[in-house]
Simulated scan of single mutants.
Amino acid sequence: MNKSNKKIIFTSFFLLMLNIADATAMSELSDEEMSAETGQALFSLQQIAPNDASNPNINVGFYKLGMDAQVEINANINKLQLGCGGNKGIGCDIDLSEVRLTGTQAIDGNYSNTDAILDNPFIEFAIKNPNQASTREVVGVRLGAESVLGLLSIGSNPDPLNIYDDKGINTITGDLNISVTDSKLSNGCVQLIVCLPFTGTLSPYNTSISVNRANSIDLTGLQATTTSVVGFPIGLTLNNINVLNQPLSTVHNLLLSRDKEGKIPTKDFYLSLQTQAITWQKSSTQKFDHAQAQPGWWISLPNLQISNLDIKQQIDVSASDVINGVLFNQPIYINPIDLGHMPSNNCYGSLKFC
């Protein structure tokens, strides 16, 4: 192409861009024309004053910037540590290994092409003495969303028969509302001179707890029904089963959903950092009835579904405990166990963990 043709093409392109710019130029609207236009802003602002009747925090106001949008995310984080050391001493508020955040429904057994969905994400600031410039202070910041639907998968479990090789949740700080459903015991053993093997199912279990740098939790008041004893189909209900100091590292899949199928988004999920205890507002109800977030990093997981546990590690129960439990409703204590929980497969490309 010669220089003359290049010059003609460039001139034509320049004139075309001028025409486009002229066609899309802004024009002035009258007040009547402005009032006839409708639309919705991408961002919204909300303020809650310190003296608001519903605000239980003393002299603390809230300023919230929300986005009217849906965010989809698939992420792998090798190590997530927040709030380590400081005035709380050795350790971390939140310490998680091999974190995956994905969608709730696998595609051909893999979650790499699925996304967690965050509706209307926001950032919020808690300001102490907001009306006094000389003493105004940021005492908290919160990241969250009005609703979340996703699978939070953590750590690894190389051997479901060995509780000591699990890794994942090292420590966690926050309020957790846990529902356990559709879980079975595959390797129970009543100790009566010899082992009397049994299998069974766990009844649905719910607990709400607030924890501070916890690496274990107590599971109390569990109920199990045997499906077979020594190979015979016998239905025997065991009440008030307690597992003390169950390592959180044995929990690998946290379904962020209000249903065990993973189809109904959970409300009021957030992650916050505060210098003093703060009660944050629930976005879904506009009420201040969250558990009080303590100083440091805090995560609120209001709906955690843990389903389809297949506990294959041997569970030993003494015959006397079974008799006292069945006849007199006495507590039955069992040792911490590998829950048989397996993290999701989120392998893609050359990732080093899945």
Rank of each mutant, 00 (worst) to 15 (best):
W280G: 07
V141Q: 10
P343W: 03
N19S: 13
P121T: 08
N345A: 10
C189F: 01
L339M: 05
I334K: 00
I107Q: 14
S54L: 14
A53M: 11
A126Y: 04
H290Q: 11
A21C: 15
Q46I: 07
L82C: 04
D182C: 09
T173D: 02
I123W: 01
I77Y: 03
I154E: 03
F62W: 07
T171H: 01
C347I: 12
V190G: 06
I209M: 08
N253V: 13
Q47K: 14
I334M: 03
G349Q: 01
L96S: 03
V141I: 15
S272H: 01
E261N: 12
N303G: 05
N19L: 15
G200A: 04
I127D: 04
Q294P: 03
Q294N: 08
C189E: 05
L236N: 08
Y205T: 07
I299Q: 00
F43S: 11
L192R: 10
A214N: 00
Q105S: 15
N253S: 12
Y270H: 13
Q46D: 13
T285S: 07
V60S: 04
G325I: 03
C195H: 01
D268C: 03
D310K: 11
D218W: 00
L271S: 05
N215R: 01
I299R: 00
L143V: 08
F10N: 14
K184V: 12
F353Q: 03
D310T: 12
I178S: 08
I8R: 14
S4M: 13
Q330K: 15
L351G: 13
F269E: 05
G83V: 02
I8M: 13
M342H: 09
K79A: 08
K88Q: 15
Q223A: 13
S344T: 14
G262I: 05
N346V: 09
M26W: 14
E124Q: 09
A214R: 01
M342T: 15
T173L: 04
R142H: 05
S257E: 01
I172W: 00
I264R: 06
T279D: 01
M1F: 12
G174T: 05
I169L: 03
I306M: 04
Q70N: 13
I77T: 08
K263A: 15
F13W: 11
N240T: 07
N55T: 09
V251N: 01
S27L: 10
Y348A: 15
S307M: 06
I117V: 15
Q305I: 06
S35K: 12
K64V: 06
G103M: 06
K184H: 09
P302D: 02
N51D: 15
N131P: 05
I169H: 01
D52R: 08
L18M: 14
I241G: 02
S112K: 12
D218Y: 00
K3N: 15
S179V: 10
I73C: 07
N59R: 02
